[in-house]
Design a protein around this nucleic acid. Structure first.
Length: 284
DNA sequence: ACTAGCACCTGATCGC
DNA sequence: TGCGATCAGGTGCTAG
């Protein structure tokens, strides 16, 4: 569920509540809550102090006053909540961290999310070492990333979802970025010129920056910030979830197709279907 | 190195 | 009221 803007909203919330706090104790409450590659049980960080909260793409981690980090991925439905201790356990509570006056809780309906204790390599948790930089990383190199995209033979939307090329973009913001860039999701990476690829990358950064300002996209209570509040970017979405509704730019009806077993939404006028694609031949 | 396909879960919704 | 099919914001692993 959560993509970069939602994870960044969570990171900001965690940073404001947790920096400088001491973890009295920590425990996992579900067998899938701890990533199988965790180098130690959550309880091993008892007594450590939280120094910083970091993010790369959709991966989050807490830096401590010791070499290990607490790394987490929210999967499709994970959430971190700052809660008074007296609040009853949530239905899908998977792990809890005792911070003294309050608790940090990891809640996750679908259990695709996880937390882990990990070591870092060049400042990045080993569990996230295969994840490329996201567009907000100061060392993000747009020329290098555009060249990487250009070498791929898959549709641009599939490549946007590949976190090893560029991280942070998920199904919502891939569709939104392509709409903003006026590029059809079915266009092949290798047939796009570098200028078009750069337009897509810049559009992805722009739409995610706007979403961060709005506190992320909430369709329901599966995505909420650390205080339990929803983000309000949903009302700004141009194509995602808007099948059969008018394009906000040209008025044409938004189409939905299936790509890589997931929904893709686009405006057939603003984002012309590539010549020769199966979809284009069917439409002729 | 790249790609497709599936597995991993719970819950909401929809058609019958 | 029930029941199966389908869908949902993601990623990791496998085989080719």
């Amino acid at each position: 569920m959560p993509e970069l803007p939602e994870v960044e909203t969570v990171r900001l919330g965690l940073a404001s509540h947790l920096i400088g706090k001491k973890i009295k104790s920590a425990q996992a409450l579900h067998k899938r809550a701890t990533n199988s590659k965790s180098i130690a049980p959550l309880s091993s960080i008892s007594g450590s102090k939280i120094v910083e909260v970091k993010r790369r793409g959709k991966f989050l981690w807490l830096e401590l006053n010791r070499p290990e980090v607490v790394v987490a991925h929210l999967g499709m439905s994970g959430q971190f909540l700052i809660q008074p201790k007296r609040v009853n356990p949530e239905k899908h509570l998977r792990a809890r961290f005792d911070l003294g006056n309050f608790e940090l809780r990891f809640v996750d309906q679908r259990t695709f999310g996880w937390v882990a204790i990990d070591q870092t390599i060049d400042g990045v948790p080993a569990l996230a070492s295969h994840i490329s930089r996201d567009p907000f990383d100061p060392d993000f190199d747009i020329d290098e990333v555009a060249t990487h995209f250009k070498k791929r033979k898959v549709e641009i939307k599939k490549a946007l979802l590949d976190q090893s090329i560029m991280s942070g973009v998920g199904n919502i913001y891939a569709d939104e970025a392509l709409w903003l860039a006026k590029i059809n999701p079915l266009r092949s990476c290798e047939k796009l010129d570098l200028r078009e690829i750069q337009t897509v990358i810049k559009a992805a950064k722009k739409v995610m920056a706007r979403a961060i300002k709005a506190g992320g996209t909430s369709f329901d209570d599966l995505y909420i910030n650390v205080n339990g509040e929803s983000g309000y970017f949903e009302r700004a979405l141009a194509v995602y979830g808007r099948e059969e509704e008018p394009c906000r730019r040209c008025g044409k009806v938004i189409k939905r197709i299936v790509l890589a077993n997931r929904s893709a939404h686009f405006c057939p006028k603003c984002q012309p279907i590539p010549r020769g694609s199966a979809l284009e031949i069917r439409e002729r």
